[in-house]
Computed example of a mutant assay.
Amino acid sequence: MTGFAPLTPVHFSPAVEDIQPDEPATARELADTMLQIAEKTYSDSGHAIRCVHAKSHGLLEARVEVPEGLPPHLAQGLFAQPGSYQAVIRLSTTPGDLLHDSVSTPRGMALKILDVDGARLPGSERSTSQDFVLVNGREFNSPSGKAFLKNLKLLAKTTDRMEGTKEFLAKILKGAEAALEAVGRESAVLKAMGGNPETHILGEEFYSQLPLRYGDHIAKIRVVPASENLKALAGTKVDTSDDGNVLRHAVQQFFEDEAARWDLQVQLCLDLEEMSVEGVEAWDEEKSPFVTVAHIIADSQPAWNEQRADTVDDGMHFSPWNGLAAHQPLGSIMRLRKLAYERSAAFRSQRNQIPVTEPLTCPFGHGAPGQSIRPQAGL
């Protein structure tokens, strides 16, 4: 491959993180708040669902292809050698309750790349996969761990209550967000509360928002539409007025006849002062552009059904802490989320008929059940 600009990325070392002494207490409080959401939805329905990103819109079999010829600063970790991997994609929206799609919140893409080799992150030693958890916004919606906890507590108080009020409020918030975007601005807070534009989920770009180790370096991750049929969906409106599952139905309709291709890209940290590991601000793409290091391909398939929901929504976890040591999550918010991911998966696994397990192969490829190993922690 050619055309890669010369860069001098920051070299990773443990010293790039600034770990505060009160983080364990904040992490416990964050996990407790997450479980309040799970306990509320479980008491109402008798079924344990995720504390966040509870509603899935697409559950896809995919493959991740790492091309030949990546330069040394990009050929790192999972991407150090060319190859092809099986993968699972889960498309979702952020709330911890199952809402009508007219309450339009940020969208997520969770990517699980299967059967990868390498030293593991603590707690994921029995797994052989690498997870990337992504959202359709460049910046995390809270400026700090404590602000994240405060916002989560507010969210927990509204879980599974007054859905009609949420739908009405979402209309107001979407109007406010549209006004901001008309003048080149956006609000992560408005989007998180239900003001995300009502667009087709397959046209979205998805971001890690927060940094992670990238082998010898530090990076943020992005997944962007690469095939023309996905690019054509960018900004395309969907009508949520009558169909509470319009996003799911749109994904199902797309994959009835079409395949999709995304590019997985990395943005390398070049300066710790301007590209903070502990901060949530988006890094300057002019100074360090996102560069493609792999391709994600999903062929035509049943993109969502009850069997897949049992397998993935109930039986699978996605966590940035499930993966290779070469892709360790970095920064305070990533550290604070680790315990919440672990306890959320344990909560679901202990209460549902289908335990949370870690797949060794794609669990629904060609209709065949996949193998799994003992339950793993995650969200």
Rank of each mutant, 00 (worst) to 15 (best):
T2V: 13
T2F: 08
G3D: 02
A5Q: 09
P6C: 06
P6S: 09
P6L: 06
L7P: 05
E17L: 14
D18F: 12
Q20F: 09
A25C: 12
E29T: 15
L30G: 11
E39N: 14
K40E: 12
K55V: 10
K55P: 11
S56M: 12
R63W: 08
L70R: 06
A75P: 08
A75V: 11
Q76L: 07
Q76M: 08
P82K: 04
P82S: 03
G83M: 12
Y85F: 15
Q86K: 08
L91E: 03
L91M: 14
T93S: 09
G96M: 02
L99S: 05
H100K: 09
V103A: 11
G108L: 07
A110G: 13
D115L: 09
D115P: 08
P122L: 03
G123S: 03
R126Y: 02
S127W: 03
S129C: 12
Q130C: 06
Q130A: 04
F132M: 07
V135C: 11
V135T: 14
R138H: 02
S142D: 02
S142I: 04
G145F: 00
K146V: 11
A147W: 03
F148M: 10
L154E: 10
L155V: 14
D160F: 12
R161C: 07
R161A: 10
M162F: 13
E167T: 15
K171Q: 13
I172M: 11
K174G: 13
K174F: 03
K174H: 08
A176G: 13
A178N: 12
A179I: 11
L180E: 07
E181L: 12
R185V: 04
E186T: 15
S187W: 00
V189S: 05
K191V: 02
N196G: 04
H200M: 01
L210Y: 00
L210I: 07
P211I: 06
H217P: 06
K220D: 00
R222F: 01
P225M: 02
A226D: 13
A232P: 15
G244I: 07
N245W: 07
H249L: 05
V251W: 00
V251I: 08
F254W: 04
F255P: 10
E256R: 14
E258A: 12
E258P: 06
Q265H: 00
Q267M: 01
Q267R: 01
C269G: 03
L270Q: 09
M275D: 06
S276Q: 07
E278I: 03
G279K: 02
V280F: 02
A282R: 08
S288N: 04
P289H: 01
F290E: 00
T292C: 09
H295M: 11
I296H: 02
Q301T: 13
A303C: 14
N305Y: 03
R308D: 03
R308F: 05
D310C: 14
T311I: 15
V312P: 07
D313M: 08
D314R: 13
P320F: 07
N322H: 12
A325N: 12
A326M: 13
Q328G: 05
I333K: 02
I333E: 01
R335V: 05
A345Y: 02
F347K: 01
R348P: 10
S349D: 05
Q350R: 11
N352C: 08
E358Y: 04
E358K: 05
G365M: 07
H366L: 11
P369M: 05
G370F: 00
R374W: 04
Q376D: 01
Q376Y: 03
A377H: 09
G378Y: 01
